[in-house]
Amino acid sequence: MKIKWCFCLLIVVGWVSIAHAKLNIVATTPDLGAIAKEIGRDKVEVTSIAKPTEDPHFVDAKPSFIVKLNKADMLIDGGLQLESGWLSPLVQSARNKKILPGTPGCVVASTGILPLEIAATETTRAMGDIHPCGNPHYMLDPANGKIFAAQLCEQLCQIDKENSGYYKENVKNFTQRLDRKLAEWQKAVEPFRGTKVVTYHKTFSYFAQRFNLNVVGELEQKPGIPPSPTHINGLVPMMKNEGVKLIIVEEFRERKTPEFVASQTGAKIVILPIMAGGQKETEDYLSFFDYTIGKIVSALK
């Protein structure tokens, strides 16, 4: 009996010490989390709040994340107001000094990137769900992933100086792999340069810019407002005129509207995940692009 207890204690102590040995990182979205895993590898434990398959604008602030944030050494916030609907009550309830804004443990991932679609004029809600500071789906451009990785590494080194060499090595390695892959991806989509596409929501602006796709319209007339029949009636002839070949739709969207538009215009529908981690083929940041680029290329062939 005594031996059993000792054994239990040993496991608990061991578990606790292991748990403490790793840095706890909480990322708001799994794409940021995927990069944190690349940089931190076995020195960090990464949790992502949003599910990779769900609409990241609407995420439940589940109490279990309060506990995660309470124990976190670092919080990665996407920025550009993507998380504004659910992150602040979690951070407030977490009562964790390390992750408050203005500390090295709080990473605002959009800091270094150059956002697209910054509102040039005064915005109102009559325009739909506008992100006035820019489109928040910037991680769909691998180059932005690289910028974020460098920033993350810098802040990781600040909070964990001992392993800074390790993190720097990982960033170097990751960047190298990403550069190699990026060249591959760009080569794969090169034959389709300038292909006209329509997307459901303005999710793929960065993706299209990096891989030279030409987004000529969205199924949503205004961001966040479901497509209206009038808008679709106007969109169909436009798509026919422009010769749009592809309709890119996120996994979580309804399929009725895209299918209708596809049947009217002859364009193909490609359903893409928007974040790493949703399925086996997209486990990390690089394989995510392997998968999405593969899907686009096979649809256009």
Partner: peptide, 15 residues
């Protein structure tokens, strides 16, 4: 056009 971002980003920037 870029200035709002630079300021918004600043609040989170550490260095």
């Amino acid at each position: 056009k870029n200035t709002p971002v630079s300021v918004a980003g600043k609040s989170g920037e550490m260095e």
